[in-house]
Design a protein around this nucleic acid. Structure first.
Lengths: 139, 139
DNA sequence: TTTGTAATTTGTAATCATTTTAATATAGGA
DNA sequence: TCCTATATTAAAATGATTACAAATTACAAA
């Protein structure tokens, strides 16, 4: 399961397994899909009242650099994290800010011009859509 | 030209034309392509030493809401603005953080699944690539 | 099981970007 | 030229993130 995988990845990297870290793993892999730092902190603080925001930041950063979660840069207002690293796009409602996954067929892999492909070593890509969800457009 | 257009757009919106605003227009449409707030502020401050950051923030926000420039959400570290509103993608070097425009042929217009298209009123989309530019991968 | 130590967590303070506020200045119509 | 709504400024407030030092803890080795 995901949590075991994360524990293994941390061990392999020579990092220690602390209850705080495990709680963060648990939250990421069982909760609503695109939590913010504060979402995560609120949950962890419920279980470890003395937990520090720093711990949350550090653990998230470690997970990002291990390639196990991704930062979603869809908006400058918030910083969301995505435990799903399979290639997919996102759509955000510009009003309620909710983010949803989109699994599309062709993620424009081939739309990069030749000269860009030559001048860069491509490491990743992100596709974001912006819109009004049905709930918000009703109001 | 772009600057005249912006002046007209501001006038139409009942907004005043101040030298600070014009200087921001000028910088956006003649300088390097994807400036940050600080890039813009540094330039304006060279011409109006007493200019305030607030003015830069306000003017940029107004231009965004007029649809005349766009915020680039490629990174959480920086906030870049793009005076080019024609549809195009961006690529950022993860090391030097430089952002380049990409004019691709098919910007995956049709990759949105039917059900998403039904549940949202789509307002925009962004495509970002991440990579190492040739200069940075040489080091 | 105990111990030692390096890594981690915590709490606080520092930093940085952005927004708010209130007072002053100014664009532009009358 | 005058008037007034709007814009600018400077300073303070806010909020997110990072840095730091001291206290704690995971876990490997004894």
């Amino acid at each position: 399961m995901h949590i075991e995988r994360m524990i293994r990845r941390f061990r392999e990297a020579g990092l220690k397994i602390t209850p705080q870290r495990v709680a963060i793993f648990e939250y990421l892999y069982t909760s609503s899909s695109h939590p913010t730092v504060d979402d995560i902190y609120a949950y962890i603080a419920g279980r470890f009242p003395s937990v520090s925001l720093t711990t949350v930041y550090n653990t998230l950063q470690t997970m990002v650099s291990l390639g196990e979660i991704e930062e979603i840069a869809i908006s400058h207002e918030r910083r969301n994290f995505d435990p799903d690293t399979k290639p997919h796009a996102h759509i955000m409602c510009v009003r309620c800010k909710r983010i949803e996954d989109i699994y599309t067929k062709n993620l424009s892999e081939n739309c990069l011009p030749e000269d860009v492909r030559n001048r860069y070593r491509i490491l990743g890509q992100r596709i974001y859509f912006y819109g009004l969800c049905s709930r918000c457009s009703a109001e």
